[in-house]
Design a protein around this nucleic acid. Structure first.
Lengths: 329, 329
DNA sequence: TTGAAAGCGCTAACAA
DNA sequence: TTGTTAGCGCTTTCAA
């Protein structure tokens, strides 16, 4: 077995050209005649040559690796394993990165060590980092040391961000429920530390106030169990609830279970609108009507921005959140 | 802003020692006196020094990066976005890698380009690759060029693998259903190209034959829609079915929806046992009784093996698959 | 259009 | 215990 991997010099020798020429050819930069180009390509193919990413990064000084930084706040909630949201982030990221010849590095940050590790991260930073589920504080700290950052959640004004219209989405959800004739629209909120959750809550409270409906809410912690518990409590305290706005599908899946467990039917007795359009929405029974975030699109755009250069300070783009009607409302 | 990142030489200069000494200190290898060690550490901390991963890799020749290779066979099914299984793989991988000071690179392979890219991958290989959802052919091709591989699914005899006892799990599921008094146990199978799916099917057919039950099955393609359609068809063709063994939770979630849509109740009229214990199992309504794969454990062990060296040819370890009782059976 | 040469930041012999 | 010296495989001026 030829354990030794061919280098650029092997290719150069085989093609009878210089190292620089080979470099030009494989990088598709001008400065090599067509005949030479083919000669080099053939030699490279025959040798089974593939450039070393490490050497390339070292020599050029600019790595083609994008980091996805995900912070875990709830240790027992797990991480990507727990929230289907990340699956969609990854799904959007991969094709965008491959198109740009880049790779993805996944960095999971425990909440405890987050502050410490964040500084190390900033220095080790590569093409850039995509921030998911980060607090404004942590994000700011990171941004101070590394400007090649895009956040997928609202953080501070300076940090470039691609945001979903969480507030508007929540309003739309409530409006939809109202249009269906529901007048006791309760809410299951996400954690107060999560900026997306805060915006969704704001949107909900805004909407019910304008509609002259009572604001009834309970925290659900963005997990299924929390959604289940919150819905059960809500129903126990306010038996006349006829609809629920649940701030994420995972919680909504739990809410549906809690509601049907009381003998009520979804959507007949209690209508539900979730948020995210994650896999939890389609797995729930009945399948959830939900507010769809263009997560893949946002993640892909974030990757592209990073690959294109350093995002401008304060850059902002908001993505619409759309109502997807299924069977729960 | 000090855009220039300090190098090992800066640290050496600041600490008044040589570059090698700094290298020894930061790599925790013997050959540096305690006083020098602290001096170097202080200097490094003050400068905010962090070693360049690229340079390190290049110089040492052994990268500390593990690749997760996932092949997409169904283009429209998406990828990690679609199957919650990958979330669990990632969840298991991250802590194990961090413990070993390694990073994760995620490689998504489209089925079309898979064969071509697989050769490139082998050469670009790093500490090693973890194979998920790969066909035996592709895996063999990869293994021929790079021995630092561990598969999480059954492939060929030579390729080191950590496998779940899919066959045994399927048998257990059927036995459970039988013990519950069910006698018309249908099955929704996964794709014939997937080795896990094949094993689960074998286990099912094995079990029903031994129990003297009829084998009734339909393909569901490992996706929710497929599970829904398969269950609906099964029920239409065999109205007396009183249980279903569904080869993955995603399909099972769809099956539950299809069953309840016919007016039947789960588990009263039709009991269901899924497979995987993914998030789809808990989001379904009622929550699914399922066969739990120790995915996180398997992924973590795979990472550890790779970090420890090249796995032995033909290495095999089988993980038990356990029944998790929830409400569907 | 091509080649020569100088590093990128680090590790790993080898000397001292 | 410490320092010196070569590279690792590539990109990138700068000349030719």
């Amino acid at each position: 077995m030829g354990e030794v991997r061919p280098t650029i010099d092997d290719v150069a020798r085989a093609a009878g050209v210089s190292r620089s020429t080979v470099s030009r050819v494989i990088n598709d930069v001008p400065g090599a005649s067509p005949p030479v180009r083919t000669r080099v390509r053939v030699a490279a193919a025959e040798l089974g040559y593939h450039p070393s990413q490490a050497a390339r990064t070292l020599a050029s000084g600019r790595p083609r690796t994008v980091d996805l930084v995900a912070v875990t706040y709830d240790t027992d909630t797990g991480w990507l394993g727990a929230h289907p949201y990340y699956s969609r982030v990854l799904a959007g990221l991969m094709p965008a990165l491959e198109g740009g010849g880049a790779q993805l590095r996944v960095l999971a940050l425990g909440a405890e060590a987050a502050a410490e590790r964040i500084d190390a991260l900033a220095d080790d930073a590569t093409t850039g980092m995509i921030l998911a589920n980060i607090t404004p504080e942590l994000a700011a700290r990171l941004y101070r040391r590394c400007p090649r950052i895009v956040s997928l959640v609202p953080t501070t004004a300076a940090i470039p961000a691609l945001e979903a219209d969480n507030t508007g989405g929540a309003r739309t959800a409530v409006a939809h429920l109202h249009a269906l004739g529901r007048r006791r629209v309760a809410a299951v909120h996400g954690p107060g530390t999560n900026t997306c959750a805060i915006d969704r809550r704001t949107g909900y409270e805004d909407a019910v106030r304008r509609l002259g409906l009572p604001a009834i809410g309970a925290p659900g912690g963005f997990c299924r169990e929390g959604g289940h518990a919150a819905a059960a409590r809500l129903l126990a305290d306010h038996p006349d609830i006829d609809a629920m706005f649940v701030a994420c599908d995972l919680m909504a899946a739990g809410a549906v279970q809690a509601i049907t467990a009381t003998g009520r039917r979804v959507p007949d007795d209690v209508a539900i609108v979730g948020f995210d359009d994650s896999i939890a929405a389609t797995c729930a029974n009945p399948p959830l009507t939900t507010m769809r975030l263009p997560v893949e699109q946002m993640a892909a755009e974030a990757a592209r921005m990073l690959l294109d250069g350093t995002p401008a300070r304060g850059y902002r783009r908001t993505y619409p959140v759309e109502l997807v009607c299924r069977e729960s409302a």
